[in-house]
Design a protein around this nucleic acid. Structure first.
Lengths: 236, 236
DNA sequence: CGCCGTATTGAATAGGGTCAAGCGACGTGG
DNA sequence: CCACGTCGCTTGACCCTATTCAATACGGCG
């Protein structure tokens, strides 16, 4: 089902049944009985590469279920620098904090073309009281986000620059193992790893020389996972 | 109410009413009606400085509500290094992941003497289906943990070493603003900031020379917040 | 073709790591 | 009560890695 197909079914009452993310936890928890009530307030949206889903400190009214594409969550430091604190991919919830706090905590920016399902936060909040499945789903999402944060703290923010770059490549490749996957620009990678663009670039050049990394196109990469894991001494 | 008093009331049916953390969100959500059922399974525990609440990959059966003291969450890297990914303090929930996953994700170690209330995870899970307040409380806790993680990623894991040390001191002082507060050993601080003990030590020495930091005792510090915030260019 | 933004490469530098020695507090045992 | 050993903190000197600054190359697009 393509995006335009989905936009079409948006006009129907059964939109969620045919939604391409029917399999994604949260939407799956919205029961047929809820359709009529939610009909008017849930939107399917396509966001072009580079544009913002929301900004830091904006009033947090919606959560976004990510159907496709990659979204980065960015934070600004008082010193002017910025840091990317998380990447979100298919099935992740963007702006989940809107359920508990009144302002978004990051800038959320589409790194690729992105399609999302936009659900009012108070609707989620309300439904979560009634559906323990939805609740469990929210808790799980939060749990996953924390796990990711821990990984970023341990693997992507400490140790030698080569290790960090390698861990990031491994992490990115998990979206599409054994295949070509999305690789952000050097500056973004630097902002994830707390390194400069030059350092990232140099490490990438090294990996290419050693044959552990191929760049089939701008934004695209393919890696020799086993070899990379050996570099960071990750068993298996 | 002292710890021994609390241990005494543990023997009574009304224990939670007199619990020193009655004001802490989660316990407050356990209603009188639940007392009889929970009676046998909730323990009040005092843990001495340096000992473990649980280890990574252990089966996760309990959450711990932190009444007093500081707990560090540690992760080991395949390379042998370790990193402290979070500090928990009064009112925080330790091992909250036990509600959603089967194994703990960190080593949880008491940095000071610690007192906790130990609640079986399945009990929390069960109660969360019935109490939307408890649920909201869980969601809030998770939200807070993520916020903390973001702070650690942005402020404690990037930028010059002096900035990191200063941010950590500011963060630690928030427990007891304007007063003396707990400061961990240099090695632990290094593991939080992704720096070596020597670098941390040097920066601390510098701050003391400039009169921005006093160390009234081992583990204790007092800072000139305004001055430190000026260093990291944090407004106000 | 020439322009712009991004990536790469190079050379010089600075900041943090590493290694090693010295110091001070504390606890133990003589 | 003091000598001794331990452990954690500090300090110094040197080295190495990542940053900085600058030049160049690449690729898409008007």
């Amino acid at each position: 089902m393509t995006i335009s197909d989905c936009n079409k079914v948006l006009l129907e009452e059964e939109k969620c049944v045919f939604c391409p993310t029917r399999d994604i936890t949260l939407s799956a928890c919205i029961k047929p009985g809820d359709f009529l009530r939610t009909y008017s307030s849930i939107y399917y949206k396509v966001i072009e590469k580079g544009s913002k889903l929301y900004g830091c400190d904006e009033e947090a009214r919606h959560i976004f279920i990510l159907h496709d594409g990659i979204v980065k969550l960015k934070k600004h430091l008082p010193t002017g620098e910025q840091r990317i604190v998380r990447l979100l991919r298919k099935g992740d919830i963007v702006g989940i904090e809107s359920v508990t706090v009144s302002c978004y905590q990051h800038d959320a920016i589409a790194m690729t073309a992105v399609s999302v399902c936009m659900i009012p936060a108070d609707l989620v909040f309300e439904l979560s009281h009634k559906s323990s499945e939805l609740n469990a789903s929210l808790l799980n999402n939060w749990q996953r986000a924390l796990l990711t944060s821990d990984t970023w703290l341990t693997k992507l923010s400490s140790g030698p620059s080569l290790y960090r770059v390698v861990w990031l490549l491994i992490w990115l490749s998990e979206i599409a193992p054994d295949e070509e996957f999305f690789m952000p620009g050097r500056e973004d990678m630097g902002n994830m790893l707390a390194l400069t663009t030059e350092t990232v670039s140099r490490n990438i050049a090294g990996l290419r020389r050693d044959g552990d990394l191929e760049l089939p196109g701008r934004d695209r990469a393919r890696i020799d996972i086993a070899s990379l894991k050996r570099i960071v001494k990750d068993p298996v």
